[in-house]
Design a protein around this nucleic acid. Structure first.
Lengths: 132, 132
DNA sequence: CCTTGACTTAGAGTTAACTCGAAGATTTAT
DNA sequence: ATAAATCTTCGAGTTAACTCTAAGTCAAGG
């Protein structure tokens, strides 16, 4: 199977624009094989990498750090423990971030509760979390 | 009691720089009373507002939206339901954001697990979440 | 008095991660 | 054959929220 895709197809599949895919390659996040004439041909593997980059980005990992990770990947088997450590460390940062957001959300709830108390006859729209 | 503070003191107390406090005022997030000669005097109330701004910011509310909220506050009692709605809506956005982060964290955990499987003799540093 | 701090306006610089466009050449697809 | 896609390089523009500097004036505290 191992299909190949043009940059436009890769863009459509991953939701990352062609511009940005080229940008990622320039930043060392991707290295996509080329045809004899120099056009990029994305493999399913490449698409997997793009998805992984997107995942890390969504968890607030900066591009340079992602680049570091991927460089380690290319450096082979003996970097596995380093790579895992990076992910584990990042997971910790992320968990802290989530915990902070939740504590802020509690503070926000207190404020909302305050507004509910001030004007009780409008209570009906406060507990709407599950409505939509 | 109702103490008053210079801009530097307010900066120290809130952790927001004097520069940024002035910036917030320019953006309509604060309106701090002045001495006869024009120097800002922050009240405890003002500090409360600053803390609230910081809270909303930390939950990713953009400054213009915070400004809208605060403008409503000044417009008085009949905007209470609007204000609460803003907070409730924002709480939803925030809850979604947290949920997304958590789902990404799960994906990250899967990756970490994969790395653990690849090289089991290094398992010892994977479950370290509670260590430090 | 004198140093430190405050005020104003105005504008430039910063950071991250795109985002876009143009120019000019080549390639691919129909 | 021709239209659409791709390639390269280059550099400018965007967004948010600061962050800092400068110039020039004025106020406050000891």
């Amino acid at each position: 199977m191992t299909s190949k895709y043009t940059i436009q197809q890769a863009a459509e599949i991953t939701g990352v624009s062609a511009h940005t895919l080229r940008y990622y390659e320039r930043q060392g996040l991707l290295s996509v094989a080329r045809t004899a004439s120099g056009h990029r041909r994305f493999t399913d593997d490449d698409l997997g990498w793009v998805r992984f980059i997107v995942l890390l980005k969504r968890t607030n990992m900066p591009l340079p750090e992602i680049a570091t990770f991927i460089r380690l990947e290319k450096d082979g088997r003996d970097t596995i423990s380093k790579r895992r450590k990076m992910l584990v460390d990042h997971r910790k940062v992320l968990a802290n971030h989530v915990a902070e957001l939740q504590s802020h959300m509690n503070a926000l709830d207190a404020k909302i509760h305050y507004y509910s108390d001030v004007n009780n006859d409008l209570l009906n729209c406060v507990q709407d979390d599950s409505t939509q």
